[in-house]
């Protein structure tokens, strides 16, 4: 079966995010009462697997080995309901 996965990758809390800081400033200049913008990545993929658990397992393995860097990033993996 084919499963659609979403992998969300985010900077760890202690890692400074200069792109997020710049975006925070511009949003504030635009008049929004906003703070602490953090910019991550969303990666969508299609996985062939026997069942949903194995699809998630494959997604987590790919996230751990390549899609995220565990030194400075965290990740979540979820299945997109068709």
């Amino acid at each position: 079966m084919t499963f659609d996965l979403i992998v969300n990758v985010a900077w760890k809390e202690e890692i400074l995010d200069p792109a997020g800081q710049s975006t925070t400033k511009v949003l504030q200049q635009m008049g929004y009462a906003v703070d602490n913008v953090r910019i991550g990545k969303q990666i969508r993929l299609q996985v062939e697997a026997q069942d949903q658990d194995r699809a998630l397992e494959a997604g987590r393995e790919m996230a751990k080995r390549l899609l995220a860097n565990p030194v400075m990033e965290t990740y979540t993996v979820q299945v997109v309901e068709a």
Partner: peptide
Amino acid sequence: LCERGLLPGALRPNVSG
């Protein structure tokens, strides 16, 4: 080398952006 795990740590974006 860091990404391969052959050296410890990682390189993140410069703080100045």
